[in-house]
Simulated assay, not measured.
Amino acid sequence: MHRRTVLNVLATASVAALSLAALPTPALAAAPRLSGIDITGSSLGPDISLSYTNGKPASIKDFHGKLVLLFFGFTQCPDICPTALSRAVEIKRLLGADGQRLQVLFATVDPERDTAPLLDAYMKAFDPGFIAIRGDKAQTARTAKDFKIYYSKVASGSSYTMDHTAITYVFDDKGAIRLALRHEQTAEQCAADLRTLLQTKPTSNFLKGLFQ
């Protein structure tokens, strides 16, 4: 091939490459920036096998139109659970009017001690709108397994405490699981993530494999 022809071909290819590079990539442009872990499309759950404190079976579907924050813990938790629930209170405040579209669910991993009256009182100490859910030992184990939650009874003096996963799952207003909020995230970061969910449609994420 003539030298001038080769140069012309290379020049044309370079211009084409630069033109393509200048175009926005739809997938990347549409991807929301989140502080939490995007688990959109994950097979976690997809629902809970527990009940409300009045004995009625609980379901994520009961909260269609709201964002649901699901946290597993126990009422005698000395630090992790109170911190997570206090953060949820602040998240709700930071969301302003959208805070009314937020529902917090607290699933106990200690049904032996966490009776319905105790759970109701514990929720009211943080926010009257927060809801506790519980089950027997088998139902608790099943739900924890469905959501890949670890928990274990640990002897402590004459009694015991519970070790458990400190993560908050977020469902969007259509009932689809979307996010895993880490315990170290600030209320501001979490609120920003929730605002993003309220404004975007779900798209499957490759990180979902970590939670399947």
Rank of each mutant, 00 (worst) to 15 (best):
T12K: 11
L18D: 02
S19G: 14
A21K: 06
L23M: 14
L23W: 14
P24Q: 09
A30L: 12
A31M: 09
A31C: 03
A31G: 01
A31D: 08
R33D: 13
S35V: 01
G36I: 01
D38R: 05
G41S: 05
S42I: 10
P46Y: 01
L50D: 05
L50S: 06
L50P: 07
L50M: 10
G55A: 12
K56I: 12
P57V: 05
A58D: 05
A58G: 06
D62F: 11
D62K: 12
F63C: 12
H64Y: 12
V68F: 07
V68T: 11
F74D: 05
F74V: 10
Q76M: 13
I80C: 03
I80G: 01
T83I: 11
A84Y: 04
E90Q: 15
K92G: 03
K92Y: 07
G96W: 03
G96H: 03
A97K: 13
R101A: 08
L105H: 06
A107R: 05
A107Y: 01
P111A: 02
T115C: 02
P117Y: 08
P117F: 07
L118Y: 06
A132S: 10
I133F: 03
A141E: 15
R142I: 12
R142C: 02
S152W: 06
S156Q: 13
S159L: 13
Y160L: 14
Y160K: 10
T161L: 09
D163W: 06
I167W: 10
Y169D: 00
D173C: 02
G175P: 07
G175A: 06
A176Q: 15
R178K: 03
L179S: 08
L181F: 06
R182E: 14
H183Q: 13
Q185R: 04
A187V: 12
A187C: 11
E188K: 14
A191T: 03
D193T: 07
T196Y: 00
L198G: 08
K201E: 15
S204Q: 13
L207V: 12
G209P: 01
